[in-house]
Amino acid sequence: MSPPLAEGRGLVMEFGGPGLLTPGRRPVRAVAGVDIAIRRGEALGLVGESGSGKSTIGRMLLRLVRPTAGQVVFDGQDITGADRAALRPLRRRMQMVFQDPFGSLNPRMGIGPAVAEGIALHRLASGSAARDRAASLLERVGLSPGLYDRRPAALSGGQRQRVAIARALAVDPDFVVADEPVSALDVSVGAEILNLLRELRRERQLALLFVSHDLGAVRTLCDRVAVLYLGRVMEEGPAAAVLRAPSHPYTRALLSASPGRPGEARGPRILLRGEIPSPAAPPSGCVFRTRCPYALPACAETVPALRPLDATRRAACIRDDILGMEAAA
């Protein structure tokens, strides 16, 4: 098996904390010791409710933010403490597709020049060659050449997301983080964008981190999935296996609440009690225990480690009977 291209080891991200006027304020731990690895040509889905830390992990792997603790490794190089000068030659190889393409595009610039800008900035081409390359990319993502000089406001949401994908791919990256790229689109347009991403990552052998709360989208696009809750990974493994037969109670609850495929048999709906706790004051022990229908008193005392269920899957729960490990044994 090839080594990871992008890797996070024990990633921790805290926000806030004590200050001059707030000496007693506790930091908010958005990510709490996450290990994550993505290989070249692989798509990893990162799923969970809002506030689970998904987008923060993506930004740490791109070193758009520096982790409070842990390591970020890209292509074997530790870039955790790299400064802007050291990161500059790597920026071409690491790109991001944002949830809101309108907010990430310059409203005063035509979409073609916006794509050509990165090509010229990284000295991959210039002048008419950069323009031709940008036009070709726009056509590849399904946009008419006649839209080259249109500004983002003149396009639909789906068209703007195609521009954002073209701009990310314009510099021939090796690793792309797609942060909820279809959440603001209607179902049919979102499906088209997912198919486009699937084709492009296979063509270019991209390593893709796909951040989403949509398990159907993850099933369509991803090879593996990691399920987050309050900054911790609850379950991870091959997407097809995890979404067909989830082991962790949180994954089961997410799956029971998501729309199934036509004709697919669905189990009973699992309703989680209460609200997701604040990351500023997470529960002791297992962070999911306050909403888990199978929680025991011991769950308040022990932080469950991710442990193997088989050769490819891991889950974080102290109860062997819930994970099905007793039956497997």
Rank of each mutant, 00 (worst) to 15 (best):
L255I: 15
A134W: 12
A32W: 08
A30I: 15
Y148K: 01
D149L: 11
V182I: 08
R131P: 03
V177R: 11
A281H: 00
V233T: 14
S258F: 02
Q99P: 01
P304S: 05
L21R: 14
Y148E: 02
P249E: 10
L147K: 00
R9C: 01
R204A: 01
A184F: 00
L62V: 06
G146V: 15
L105T: 03
I36V: 15
M109Y: 10
A241F: 06
L121F: 15
A154N: 02
P308Y: 09
P23I: 05
P3Q: 15
P27N: 03
I165A: 00
M60T: 07
G118P: 09
G324D: 10
P101N: 11
M13S: 06
G142C: 11
I111H: 10
I38C: 15
V177Q: 11
P246T: 01
R123C: 03
R93S: 01
A30W: 12
A328Y: 01
P268V: 09
R39W: 02
E199Y: 03
G158T: 02
E7G: 02
S247A: 15
G110E: 10
V115N: 13
S284E: 07
P268F: 05
L296W: 01
A207I: 04
E301F: 02
G285I: 09
F98Q: 10
E326D: 04
D75N: 08
C317V: 10
V187K: 04
P262K: 13
I318P: 03
P262R: 12
V176H: 13
F74Y: 14
L62Q: 05
A298M: 08
R232G: 07
M13V: 13
P4R: 02
L61W: 11
F74I: 07
A226R: 09
V211L: 06
M94H: 11
E235F: 09
P293M: 07
E180N: 08
P238E: 07
S2F: 07
I165G: 03
G53Y: 09
F210M: 12
V28A: 00
R167A: 00
L20E: 13
K54R: 01
Y229L: 11
R88Q: 12
P277W: 09
H122P: 00
G285F: 00
L105R: 01
V177A: 12
Y148H: 07
P3D: 14
G142P: 13
E42D: 13
G237S: 04
P113E: 01
D310Y: 13
R66F: 03
T56F: 01
V233A: 14
A120M: 10
I276Q: 08
T68F: 04
A281C: 03
P152W: 05
R93M: 03
L147V: 00
V233E: 12
G216E: 12
L124H: 09
L20D: 08
E49V: 04
E139A: 15
